[in-house]
């Protein structure tokens, strides 16, 4: 077990509810996600884990349907839903890796350079430095260094997902959200991503939604357990250091879920 140190929170939420149109999807979530730690969000299907995650960088607003958030979400103390927030800067600081790898149909180089270019990076030399650093961080450099100029679509699924992680890292986020990043990958590719997550936590905060309890146990320092009931509204049951949640859950529902009696 890692040494317990009192970290400040990268993200914390106060009584957050999320609405799709008139329908409430999650209710009164107050949670803390400490800096430079891995926080896992676990829970049965439909409990609102992904909904919660997608509220943290306001990406849910891009889906086209009308969504609404109540309560407050803070990124290092700043309210991310305040009126004067520039969502593009917010999303640069809070990166996201999706369930399925979503490489752009461009070269590997252009994929990684995409984010930096959005924020004005131009020089070829500068971009080369950024691309190499991002690919090294995501442990992909050795595999792709000779084919940076070929299409990213030619990579395997696991490589594509690591490239998507590298792409997020290239804009130097402070927090990285991961929405079941391994659900479309085989066990070996999954293992690589997990190793990568443990490496990333040295520099940034990772918040990962996962269906896989073993994965949460392997990679996370903190765990948030969500569940839902007949109302179909997700809520936070319990949160704390992963070891405590897994070894001595306080709530019966958490215990049932952890021990496989539910979900």
């Amino acid at each position: 077990m890692r040494t317990e140190q009192k970290n400040r929170n990268a993200v914390n939420t106060q009584k957050v509810s999320f609405f799709y149109g008139p329908k409430r999807a999650i209710e009164d979530i107050s949670a803390e996600m400490p800096e430079r730690q891995v926080t896992a969000i676990i829970g049965p299907s439909g409990c609102g884990k992904s909904t919660f995650l997608k509220a943290l960088n306001r990406i849910s607003e891009t889906s086209g349907s009308s969504v609404r958030v109540e309560g407050k979400i803070f990124l290092f103390g700043e309210d991310i839903y305040a009126k004067d927030v520039d969502v593009t800067i917010l999303r640069k600081r809070v990166g996201m890796v999706f369930q399925r790898p979503n490489p752009f149909p461009m070269t590997i180089f252009d994929n990684i350079a995409y984010g930096p270019r959005l924020f004005g990076a131009k020089g070829k030399a500068d971009l080369e430095v950024i691309v190499e650093r991002a690919l090294r961080q995501s442990a992909l450099w050795d595999e792709v260094k000779d084919r940076l100029r070929s299409s990213a679509l030619g990579l395997s699924g696991g490589q594509q997902q690591r490239m998507c992680i590298a792409r997020s890292l290239a804009v130097e986020p402070e927090v990285l959200l991961m929405d079941e990043p391994c659900s479309a990958l085989d066990p070996i590719a999954t293992l690589k991503i997990e190793e990568l997550i443990l490496e990333l936590r040295k520099n940034l905060t990772v918040i990962i939604v996962t269906h896989n309890l073993q994965q949460a146990g392997r990679v996370s320092d903190y765990t948030l357990f969500f569940t839902t009931d007949e109302s179909r509204i997700g809520n936070l049951v319990e949160s704390g250091p992963t070891r405590e949640i897994f070894s001595s859950p306080k709530d019966k529902r958490t215990e049932d879920y952890i021990t496989g009696r539910f979900g």
Partner: peptide
């Protein structure tokens, strides 16, 4: 792809 771009701050 749209979300990928917007998640990078596009």
């Amino acid at each position: 792809l749209r979300q990928g771009s917007q998640a990078l701050g596009g």
